[in-house]
Amino acid sequence: MTAPELAAETTYRDALREAIREAMIEDERVFIMGEDVAEYGGTYAVTKGLYKEFGRDRVRNTPLSEAGFVGAGIGAALGGMLPIVEIMTVNFSLLALDQIVNTAATLRHMSGGQFHIPVVIRMTTGAGRQLAAQHSHSLECWFAHVPGLRVVAPATVTDARWMLKAAMADPDPVIVFEHNGLYNSSGPVLPGPVDLTTAEIRRPGTDLTIVASAGMVSKSLEAAEQLGDRNVSAEVIDLRSLRPLDRATLAKSVEHTSRAVVVDEGWRSVGLSAEIAAGITEDCFYRLDAPVCRVASREVPIPYPRHLEDAAIPQVHDIVAGAMTVMTGSLADV
């Protein structure tokens, strides 16, 4: 059966759904489960309509038991199925950490290679919707820390479509982070495939490399435009995969720009930005004209009021300011 046709212009949400739908049509072993995914279509409407099309056995509501249903997804994968587990948001994944970190990531190793776990675990991440400190996390780096997990964060409609497809085809557990600010974004779906390992240059430049992922990519592109007005030519790299990191693409870019700013919606200390900055420093030390700059969230629980939430997470002006410190050599540790 052929893949369903996509409109020329589609949303990130619809692109994800098409990837799931295609996989469900192609392989009866694919099923999806999670909280409110059935009739309701998911709290972010990604699975809308799938229940009607595929029925209750393949689009399953679960009780509110994250450890239980993530564990069941792992078990179903062991039993020969190809489960997609939707966790409503990353903060709920904390209830399932034991299953993800201690079992999904280790069973291949613990079984001496007898088992592998082809499970896809999707979850929403990020702040920006006034959902307060317990529902606005960016904990991608927690998962990217763990050997045995692949961690991806598609930032465009095309990547949503093809990276989810690649995730479902992968024999190992893949964690897919969907930034809540991206679901309504729209654009054309360019032809695939897209792999789970390669970063992408979203905007070429010569003076400075800005490294970002997920919700920070569009802000970085906007910052790059503003930097252009100041005669700074910024290259913007979308990481796409957080584990493994595509250090070759980063190194190649910094080799010709000699400067880098890493943008991360997560917290700064012991975060993703630290790993990327360290990698760039290791790979390009003798080419760097300035220390690598990190632009990350302020080290506070994400506040509830809109203006304070905006102030806590990196904005375009923060990225521009970070870039200018690198360009002028006035980098301060904040």
């Binding site: 700064r268 200390s269 302020r298 080290e299 506070v300 629980p301 506040p303 203006h307 304070l308 102030a311 806590a312 301060a332 540790d333 904040v334």
Partner: peptide, 19 residues
């Protein structure tokens, strides 16, 4: 607006003070 930093710890850490 600085209440953003008020209730993270009893005392601000050096990094929070800088921020």
């Amino acid at each position: 607006p600085e209440s953003l930093f008020h209730h993270v710890f009893d005392e601000l850490t050096p990094r929070l003070s800088r921020q």
